[in-house]
C-alpha cells in the first residue's frame, strides 16, 4: 500500500519539485535566501547518501563528515596546487573518495551494529587528525583558502545565484538517482539486508558486497557535497571532518525520518534553517538542536516527514503505521 503509493509519488513529485526549484530565483530574484538554499542543497546531498546507507541498508556509519572533508580537500588541493579546473577537480575528487570508501568500507563492513558505528567514527577521527597534521598539503589548522570558484568558460559562478544553478541541479540528479535506486531491484535487496541479512544470505544474496556498494555510493554523495562546498565557500578547514559535523548530519536524518529520501531533504532544510536562525546564539545552537530533536522525536518518533504524513492522513483514515 504505502510502498507502491510512495513509488508513484516519488516519480510524480520529483518533476514539479525540480521545476519549482529551478524557477524559484526567476520568481523571487537574487537574495540572501539563495545562500541559505545552497546550504540546504549541500546538506541534503549528504543526508540523502546517508539515508541510503543507514535508512535503507541499515548500516550505521559515522564517517560522512570524513568523506565530505575528503571531497572538499581533494578538490581544493587539486585546483589550488595542481591547477585543475574546478569541475575537473570535482570529478577526480569523487574518484579518490570512491576508492577510499571502497578500501575503508571493505574493512569496516565486516563489522555490524555498534562495532561498525565505532569503526567508522574512528575513521572520522583519523581523517581529522591527518588533515590537521599534514599541514604541508592541507594547511593544517589554518585550512586552505583562495580555492577557485566554480566557473563555466570565462564566467565565474561565484555569486549565490550562480552556485544555486550548480548545486541544485546536481542535488536534483542525485535525488532522482536515489529515488530510482530504492524502487529498483537493488533497493529491494538493501532493504531486505536492513530487515534481516541472515535470511538474505539464505536466499543467495552476497550481503557484504551490497553493503560495500551502498557505502561507496553514500560516501560519494557526501564527497560531492564537500567538493562543491569547497569551491562555493572558497575555504576549507579541519572542522569539515569533525565529529560534531558528522553528528549534525545524523541529526538531519533523525529529524526528517531515517528511511525516507524526501525526509532527509526536509531534515536538511529544517536544520539549515535552524542554524541560520540561531546563528547569533553561537554555542547555544547545539542545545537548541538537541531540544528541537527531542521534541520532534517525541511527537513524531519516526521522523518529521513520516510523522506529518501520518498526521495528515489520520483525518481521513486510521493510521497504518506503514513506513519504509
Amino acid at each position: 500500500m504505502f510502498d507502491t503509493y510512495m513509488k508513484d509519488m516519488n516519480r510524480l513529485v520529483w518533476l514539479p519539485v525540480s521545476a519549482g526549484v529551478l524557477a524559484l530565483p526567476l520568481l523571487l530574484g537574487d537574495g540572501y535566501y539563495l545562500n541559505v538554499l545552497n546550504f540546504i542543497a549541500l546538506y541534503s546531498m549528504i543526508a540523502i547518501g546517508l539515508c541510503l546507507l543507514i535508512g535503507y541498508c541499515g548500516q550505521l556509519s559515522i564517517s560522512h563528515s570524513a568523506f565530505f572533508a575528503i571531497g572538499a580537500y581533494s578538490s581544493a588541493i587539486l585546483s589550488l596546487r595542481f591547477g585543475f579546473h574546478p569541475f575537473v577537480a570535482i570529478l577526480i575528487s569523487q574518484l579518490i573518495s570512491a576508492v577510499l570508501a571502497l578500501g575503508i568500507g571493505s574493512v569496516v563492513l565486516r563489522l555490524k551494529g555498534h562495532y561498525l558505528a565505532i569503526a567508522t567514527l574512528s575513521f572520522t577521527i583519523i581523517v581529522e587528525v591527518i588533515i590537521v597534521e599534514a599541514a604541508w598539503v592541507t594547511g593544517g589548522l589554518q585550512g586552505l583558502s583562495g580555492i577557485p570558484p566554480l566557473s563555466l568558460g570565462s564566467m565565474e559562478l561565484d555569486t549565490d545565484l550562480g552556485v544555486y544553478y550548480v548545486v541544485w541541479p546536481v542535488l536534483l540528479l542525485l535525488l532522482l538517482f536515489a529515488l530510482n535506486l530504492i524502487d529498483s531491484r537493488f533497493g529491494r535487496v538493501i532493504k531486505g539486508i536492513r530487515e534481516n541479512e541472515d535470511v538474505m544470505r539464505l536466499f543467495g544474496v552476497g550481503v557484504y558486497g551490497y553493503k560495500v556498494k551502498v557505502f561507496v555510493l553514500s560516501s560519494v554523495y557526501a564527497s560531492i557535497a564537500g567538493s562543491l562546498y569547497a569551491h562555493f565557500i572558497g575555504f576549507v578547514s579541519p572542522s569539515a571532518a569533525s565529529l560534531s559535523f558528522a553528528i549534525d548530519i545524523i541529526m538531519v536524518l533523525a529529524f526528517g525520518g531515517f528511511n525516507l529520501i524526501w525526509g532527509a531533504m526536509l531534515g536538511a532544510a529544517a536544520i539549515t534553517y535552524l542554524t541560520e536562525y540561531l546563528t547569533d546564539f553561537a554555542d547555544f545552537k547545539r542545545v537548541a538542536f538537541g531540544v528541537a530533536l527531542v521534541v520532534v522525536m517525541i511527537i513524531f518518533p519516526s521522523g518529521l516527514l513520516p510523522g506529518l504524513q501520518r498526521w495528515l492522513k489520520a483525518g481521513r483514515r486510521a493510521p497504518t503505521g506503514a513506513q519504509r
Partner: peptide, 27 residues
Amino acid sequence: AVVPEGRRLFGPMSVLDNLMLGSFLRL
C-alpha cells in the same frame, strides 16, 4: 531454499517484495 523457523519475513516490506527477494537468484 528455506522456510525458516518463525517465518522471518521482511516485515515492513510488501508481500510482493518478499516474494521477489525469494527469487533473487532467479532474477
